[in-house]
Structures are given as structure tokens and as C-alpha cells.
């Protein structure tokens, strides 16, 4: 009893010390020995992969050791995330992914072999990419108001293509429909590009998806843009109102990319990585590349990220559970 109390006291004292001490004694460069791996749990060429390959060399310069990007796709990112969760907690194995996927995983996959909040340690958010809600021209609407009116007049006639059952754009579609009291049909596809293709061909007629995948078709008049998520209108499509202006919920829905490492990694190491990540994200060329990906830089502390994750697990996970979207 007594020893346990002492241990707890010692631990909290240590934790407090570590917390307080951080700004003064940040981890030293030689804390990183041997290669650091950034695991991207998706196929190469996607946003996470491009970000990892953008950040990797700059991180390598900063921590003076080689940084390798490793693609480990499979199971909606869970395979790669699990590999990082079960790695040695020494800050040498990082995970860069769409953390929306991560936050929905516990609700979607009850068999998940790791705890996303305990076995992974957030380092920092990297970027946010807003969604565009767009419809096929055959629907014949071009404003949020008309869309809602159409949906109310024709229940079930709007078919919303999503990139998979329980994907964040699926959850967003459910959330919007519920809040506006409309009925539309959710049509799952195998990934975002299959969904895009389906809406361009008119197989489905509505899509909520990333800007880089959607805006070119809006510009080309193959799709009609209705609204965008995020706090601000897009600089490249100023005439599209935000979800908030349109009266839609889920204003923060979109692609959130974040950097994490193995849970239990010493705080000084995590903070060192966070500090370097923030410096990298402040570089003009990095910001330009992220803008090309249709996103905005979202640098923040590990604590901010943890809070975001906690929140998303609750809200998005809640929608999944409410609607029985479990992969079981």
C-alpha cells in the first residue's frame, strides 16, 4: 500500500518534472540514433504519403539521422498504425496518416489489436483539408438552399457516394442528413477515387470529398459545387459558401493529417519531435506544397492533438455506433 503510494507520488513528481522541464532541457540531437521510420499506412502517392516524403528529409536534417518513409497499407490504415503502436517506444517509429480514419477505427473495428489513444502518442497535427460537397449537373441545383429543398421534395433521390462504410465522408453525410431532416441514400465505394468517378458518370449524384479530388470537376462543369467545410471559404473557389454559412453541421469534417509515435515514448522526445515538426511546417515551401494538396497547415501541441483525437473518437465514433456501421 505504502510502496504503491510512494511509487505513484514518485511517478507524478517525475511526470510533473518532465512537463515543467521540457522548455529548458529539450531532447538533444543525439537522442536519435539510427534511422527513424515514418510509417504511412496507405499506398504511395496519397496525401499522407506526399506529406511524409515532404517532411521526411527536413526532419532528417533537423534530428541528424536518416528518415525513411515506409508504406504499409491495409485494413483502412489499421495495419500500419498497429505496427507503430507495437514498436519500441523510443520515438524512432512515427506514423503519418489521415487521423480521421484513426479516430473512427475503435468504433468501426471492435477487433482492433491496439488502443489508439494509449498505444499511440500524438506528436502534432500537420494539415487540415476541407471537403467539398458537390452534385452531378443532372440534379439541377446549385445552392445549399436548393439542395435541401430538392432533398425534401425527393426523398431518397440524392445518392451520396462515399469512400467506404464508416469513412469520415460517410459519417459527414449521415450527420448532415440528420441535422437537416433530409433523406439521401449513402452509396459506399472502394475509396475516394472510385466515388469521384461514380459521381462524374452520374451513377451516384452527390459527393462529399477532398478539394483536390473534387474541385477540378467543378471548374470543368462536370460537377456543381455546393459548399465547403472548414472555417473559411477556399481561396480557389470563393463563391462556394462554407458549411457553416450554408447552415450545415460538421463544419470541421475533412481530411486531418497528423504525426504520431508509439505510446509510452518519453515526453522530451515527443516534444523535440513536435518542435521540429512545427519548424518544418512554418517553412514557406512546405506551406506551398500543403496548399497544393488543398489543405492548410495545422500546427499545434501534442496536447491539442490528443484533445482533437479524444473529441473525434466521441463524435464520429458516436455516429458510427448510432447507425450500426460496425464492421462486424
Amino acid at each position: 500500500m505504502k510502496t504503491r503510494m510512494i511509487r505513484a507520488l514518485a511517478l507524478s513528481a517525475f511526470a510533473a518534472a518532465a512537463f515543467v522541464a521540457v522548455p529548458f532541457s529539450a531532447a538533444k540531437a543525439q537522442d536519435f540514433k539510427g534511422p527513424v521510420r515514418i510509417v504511412v499506412p496507405f499506398a504511395p502517392g496519397g496525401t499522407s504519403d506526399i506529406l511524409a516524403r515532404l517532411i521526411g528529409p527536413k526532419l532528417s536534417d533537423a534530428i541528424k539521422t536518416s528518415v525513411i518513409v515506409e508504406n504499409k497499407p491495409g485494413a483502412a490504415g489499421n495495419l500500419g498504425a498497429e505496427a507503430v503502436a507495437k514498436a519500441k517506444p523510443d520515438g524512432h517509429t512515427l506514423l503519418l496518416m489521415d487521423v480521421g480514419n484513426l479516430s473512427t477505427a475503435p468504433s468501426l473495428f471492435p477487433d482492433l489489436n491496439f488502443n489508439i489513444q494509449k498505444d499511440l502518442a500524438p506528436i502534432g497535427m500537420v494539415m487540415f483539408g476541407p471537403y467539398v460537397l458537390a452534385v452531378h449537373p443532372s440534379v439541377g441545383v446549385s445552392t445549399p438552399k436548393d439542395l435541401v429543398a430538392y432533398a425534401k421534395a425527393n426523398p431518397g433521390k440524392l445518392t451520396v457516394a462515399n469512400s467506404g462504410v464508416g469513412a469520415v465522408n460517410h459519417i459527414t453525410a449521415i450527420t448532415i442528413a440528420k441535422a437537416l431532416g433530409i433523406q439521401w441514400k449513402n452509396v459506399p465505394y472502394k475509396g475516394g477515387s472510385a466515388a469521384s468517378r461514380a459521381v462524374i458518370s452520374g451513377e451516384s449524384n452527390t459527393i462529399i470529398n477532398g478539394t483536390t479530388a473534387t474541385l477540378p470537376f467543378v471548374v470543368n462543369k462536370q460537377l456543381v459545387g455546393i459548399a465547403v467545410s472548414g472555417d473559411q471559404r477556399l481561396p480557389t473557389a470563393k463563391d462556394l459558401p462554407t458549411f457553416k454559412e450554408a447552415g450545415f453541421p460538421a463544419g470541421d469534417a475533412g481530411t486531418w493529417q497528423g504525426l504520431l509515435t508509439t505510446g509510452g515514448t518519453p515526453a522530451p522526445l515527443v516534444n523535440k519531435l513536435n518542435a521540429e515538426l512545427k519548424k518544418i511546417l512554418a517553412m514557406p515551401d512546405v506551406q506551398a506544397k500543403i496548399a497544393e494538396q488543398g489543405g492548410v497547415v495545422k500546427a499545434g501541441s501534442p496536447a491539442d492533438f490528443a484533445k482533437w483525437l479524444d473529441n473525434s473518437v466521441k463524435t464520429w465514433g458516436g455516429v458510427i455506433k448510432e447507425n450500426g456501421l460496425k464492421a462486424q
Binding site: G45, T212, E292
Partner: peptide
């Protein structure tokens, strides 16, 4: 999909244009 990634890395926005 990889080729699209290559285009995007080059700063070319893939799409009908």
C-alpha cells in the same frame, strides 16, 4: 493512382484540365 501521386508531387493538379 501512383501516377496521380507523381503528378501531384510535381505540383500538377490531376483532373480533366
Amino acid at each position: 493512382a501512383l501516377m496521380i501521386g507523381a503528378l501531384m508531387m510535381q505540383g500538377i493538379q490531376p483532373g480533366p484540365q
